[in-house]
Design a protein around this nucleic acid. Structure first.
Lengths: 220, 220
DNA sequence: CCGTATTGTGAACAGCGTTTAGTTTTTTGG
DNA sequence: CCAAAAAACTAAACGCTGTTCACAATACGG
């Protein structure tokens, strides 16, 4: 039954064509410009047709977001691989952060969409648990490994690599978000300045923590 | 002319009543539930009336956001003042972060609105530059001062207090944002766990950085 | 070639932000 | 106190939105 397979492929092709058109609209004009009607017109179909391929506008956006995470992962890998093979863990750690920020600065609207809507809705959808989790892990485990290597080399003294990676993520994500939303406008005005700030921030994590026991010493 | 003053006060009163109603809707049902029509019905006026007090839905939301920042500032102060008078700078630093997070966790929808929409639009509105900047500074300078004191005590070795405060803000804000959007669901499941993570994160900044000169040493 | 799926659509529904023309209420001045 | 002017308020409409549903067109297996 090669015919059915072809039909399935064609259906899939149109589906991804829709997602790509949606991505283009978001990238170029922002999320608020992405209406089902505008999207339908761009792909030269009726608005109702979209609902044969996506049950919702939300489902469509979710697909756009998914592709966004894939591309951000690639961006981080690209930044890391620009380093020579002799780069140590700290440099790779910095590179990951730079890649994250670079993606955000080059795809502002895209980045916003990826993090503005809550992810919770995705949890109860079993289809995602396989592919989505895989995509997530693909970008995530390298970061954990880098932190682990840095810890092994004594550069970071964090409780564990997982936690350290989360903290790094939070730091980079927070600064990027604040910068993109304009809240750092009075502190840092250009992308170059921001990247410098980010570098400083990631360096602040180095050898920054000695486990809980020492905390009581603060009181003295 | 005391009469005109009274009229002005009454007008102002309705204006703030509108903002408070909007805040309630956002807090209870989220931003997407805040429609001009629903808001008008809640205050028992016609939708058109809202446009006598606000030129835009955006302007109205901006007002809600402004109040949000004020309340978050209070929340941070409250958390700090729960400390005894003998608390050192590090403890106050932690308290600020806790206050920030506490506000976010207790006012999820509110917090999202405060940071989701870009602030850039506010810049070219001269009316804000006075009051807004003041509100902003009111919450901001204490943080800078705390970081400064911590640096003086040798607890942080950051280039300057301003930068250190921004970095702290980014760290806390990023972790809170990621947690609220569900991206940390697999790492931290409860608010208590999250607060512990946050504490660890803030501690990672302590004595975490020695100025640029030493950076070359990494390469060796 | 015919009946049946599949794929696509036009038109409609309810709700949205916003504007305009008009009504009701309040203040003012003689 | 009453008419005129001003201020406060609103009903109705416009064009937009996401979404649905009855219907048309096309492609398929028998």
């Amino acid at each position: 039954m090669g015919i059915n397979e072809r039909r399935e492929r064609e259906k899939e092709a149109l589906r991804t064509r829709i997602v790509e058109a949606a991505r283009d609209i978001v990238s170029a004009e922002g999320l608020e410009a992405l209406s089902m009607r505008a999207l339908a017109e761009r792909i030269e179909y009726s608005p109702a047709t979209l609902y044969l391929y996506f049950k919702d506008k939300d489902e469509l956006i979710q697909e756009v977001v998914r592709e966004g995470f894939r591309r951000m992962g690639e961006c981080m890998c690209a930044e890391s691989s620009e380093l020579g093979s002799g780069a140590d863990a700290t440099q790779q750690h910095r590179a990951s952060g730079r890649g994250y920020a670079r993606f955000a600065l080059e795809n502002t609207a895209y980045f916003r969409v990826m993090f503005e809507l809550p992810t919770v809705a995705q949890m109860d959808c079993p289809t995602h648990d396989e592919e989505e989790a895989q995509t997530g892990q693909e970008s995530w485990t390298p970061v954990v490994e880098v932190v682990q290597r840095a810890m092994d080399a004594g550069l970071y003294a964090l409780p564990d690599a997982h936690r350290g990676a989360v903290i790094s993520w939070g730091l980079v994500h927070g600064l990027v978000s604040l910068y993109l939303s304009g809240h750092l406008a009075e502190v840092v005005m250009s992308n170059e300045e921001f990247m410098k700030l980010l570098e400083d921030a990631m360096d602040s994590l180095r050898v920054g923590w000695t486990p809980r026991e020492t905390r009581q010493a603060d009181l003295a």
